[in-house]
Design a binder for these strands. Sequence first.
DNA 1: GAACTTTTGGACACTCTTGTCCAATTCGTC
DNA 2: GACGAATTGGACAAGAGTGTCCAAAAGTTC
Lengths: 208, 208
Amino acid sequence: MQRGNYNKRCAIISAATAVFVRDGYVGASIDAIAEEAGVSRQTIYNQIGDKEKLFVEVVRGINEQGSARLVAVLATFPDQPEDIARELVDFAIRLTRDCLCDEGSRALRKLIENEGSRYPELFETWKDYGPGKNWPAISSRFARLARAGDIELDDPDLAARQFMALIRADLPNEPGEMVSDAELELAARNGVRTFLRAYGKREAALAL
Amino acid sequence: MQRGNYNKRCAIISAATAVFVRDGYVGASIDAIAEEAGVSRQTIYNQIGDKEKLFVEVVRGINEQGSARLVAVLATFPDQPEDIARELVDFAIRLTRDCLCDEGSRALRKLIENEGSRYPELFETWKDYGPGKNWPAISSRFARLARAGDIELDDPDLAARQFMALIRADLPNEPGEMVSDAELELAARNGVRTFLRAYGKREAALAL
DNA sequence: GAACTTTTGGACACTCTTGTCCAATTCGTC
DNA sequence: GACGAATTGGACAAGAGTGTCCAAAAGTTC
């Protein structure tokens, strides 16, 4: 234990995350966070410092969790697929569920969009992994699949971007909404089917 | 002229749009808007009323312009294409340029994401047209193309969603960034090529 | 139980914002 | 130039938020 009660620190960070995401940096009040955390306002100042430090801590937390989840999911990419359609769908489900639809990822995307201009350095880590970039980890996996002859593509980066776009195209994207497993499965299958129609062998897409 | 100077009213709305988008509803201060509009704060209260009325006016403005542009672009959908690949690319360029990448549309998307929960009724109009919905206008066009035998698809709504996702997949999506014509063209061609590989006749996609 | 740390809640100064009021000034129009 | 309407800038009250200070209470450790 470094300073103060660790449980309370976690409660503060977690409550701050919720309030920052709900109200934005300016709209979030320390009082609201304190109430949400079930903690006195003074404790926040004791443990973390001022509002800006609290915000930094929140972003760092989401970032770490998000990166960890992304790495974990990437490790499950089907490298030597037997049934490429089915395995890509399962991969897509894991990706959307753990890295796109979960609370933390949505929260981070919203914070980036709103406060990104104010704290550009805070979000640089994410930009390498985040949507809109090359997703280099994913494109290298697709390149390997192509070399193995499982799919046909000329530009792996483009294919990765389009893969991501396709499996997201069919997801409900209202921020607050819950996404059921059935919706996840359907969205993944729809996205992968089109992806394989464009890039796969003829018969692979027909399996979906 | 109904009340006050019409030019100043426009300057106010336009400045308010910029500031609301930059700082969010809570973060935007009337003083900042007044300064940006080159107008005294009192004039804003004289012409529009309070902050909430100003916000409503801003959203209404962006909404109208956005809807008008969307209708205009939709009217240029290639109904009887001779060169479907080329014509779809041109359509995609118009769509991204006028309805997705322009200032107003980006502004509206950001406002929806941030203040949508606070003023749900304000954005209902947009939700019918906006991203994430069925884009019914577009899917009916695709359905017509399919009936005419230009493409092959079973679910026009799905195809429309994926079309939108694909032509957006390759656009730089940093909010502030300017998108050059060359980038627009490239993104559209990449998206349409994959779309046609999945849904078009074999030879159409090869043309790109 | 004593010594020490943490938490609590209230009070406080300070800043910022909203919205109002008003007198002086400028603008548009005849 | 004169008249009425619009604009300006400054002052103002009320409210909310931040961050600090402090004494009392609660919790922890030996």
